[in-house]
C-alpha cells in the first residue's frame, strides 16, 4: 500500500472509532459529507490544505479552529486539529473516501460499480440493481460508466465480488485457458 493510502485508512479508522465511541456516527457522517462538499466547492480550501502549514503544531490547530470551529461537531474538529498538527490536511479527500467506505460497510450498503460496453438504458441498470439487491441486500450505492473496450455485455463489481459478463472478459478467459497445458479431466480455469 502506498504511504498516502496507509495514512488515510489509519486516519479514517481513528475518526470512525472516535465517532462510534461517542455515539455520534450519524452527526460525524453528516459533517464528513459537508466537509467533502466544501472541499469540492472551494479551490481556496484545496489550495490551503495542500500547502505545507507553517508555524508550531499549536498554531496549526488554531488555524483549523478559525476555519471550521463553528461548523462541525467537536469530534471532527479535534480530528482536523490533529491532522493539521501533523501537516496531513492534504490527505483529506482520501480520508473522506475511506471513512465513507467504512460507514457504508457498517450500514450494510453495497458499493456497486457497473461498466457497460454501450450507453445503458434504465431497464438494464434496474435489472442489475434487482439482482444485487437479491444477493446483497437493498441498500447500495451505484456508479455506472461506459467502456467500449468491453466490446459487448457488462461487468460490475459489488464490493469485492466481480461479475464479468462482457465479451472482452470472455475472450480474455479463453486466451488464458487455451494458453495452459491440457490436463486430462481438469478444466483449466
Amino acid at each position: 500500500m502506498n504511504g498516502e493510502g496507509v495514512f488515510a485508512r489509519a486516519y479514517a479508522r481513528a475518526l470512525y472509532g472516535a465517532a462510534a465511541a461517542r455515539h455520534e456516527e450519524a452527526n460525524v457522517t453528516q459533517d464528513v459529507l459537508a466537509l467533502e462538499r466544501q472541499w469540492n466547492g472551494s479551490p481556496e480550501l484545496r489550495l490551503f490544505c495542500r500547502r505545507h502549514l507553517q508555524g508550531s503544531p499549536g498554531n496549526r490547530a488554531a488555524v483549523v479552529q478559525k476555519i471550521w470551529g463553528a461548523t462541525f461537531t467537536r469530534t471532527l474538529i479535534s480530528f482536523l486539529e490533529m491532522m493539521a498538527q501533523r501537516d496531513h490536511l492534504s490527505l483529506l479527500p482520501s480520508v473522506i473516501q475511506q471513512y465513507q467506505k467504512m460507514d457504508d460497510r457498517a450500514q450494510g450498503c453495497s458499493d456497486v460499480r457497473i461498466t457497460f460496453a454501450a450507453e445503458p438504458d434504465e431497464g438494464q441498470i434496474g435489472l442489475i440493481r434487482r439482482q444485487v439487491a437479491d444477493a446483497f441486500g437493498p441498500i447500495m450505492k451505484v456508479q455506472t460508466q461506459v467502456d467500449p473496450a468491453l466490446i459487448a455485455g457488462v461487468r460490475f463489481f459489488v464490493n469485492d465480488k466481480r461479475v464479468d459478463a462482457s465479451l472482452a472478459g470472455r475472450l480474455a478467459r479463453l486466451r488464458y485457458g487455451l494458453s495452459k497445458p491440457m490436463q486430462p479431466g481438469v478444466a483449466a480455469s
Partner: peptide, 24 residues
C-alpha cells in the same frame, strides 16, 4: 477436436470472482 474440447472446458459466458486490487 482437441481445441474445441479445450474451449468448451474454459469458455464461461459469465465469470463471478472475488477480487482485490493491487495497492503496491
Amino acid at each position: 477436436a482437441l481445441l474445441r474440447r479445450q474451449m468448451q472446458m474454459v469458455d464461461r459466458p459469465v465469470d463471478v470472482a472475488e477480487v482485490g486490487t493491487v495497492l503496491s
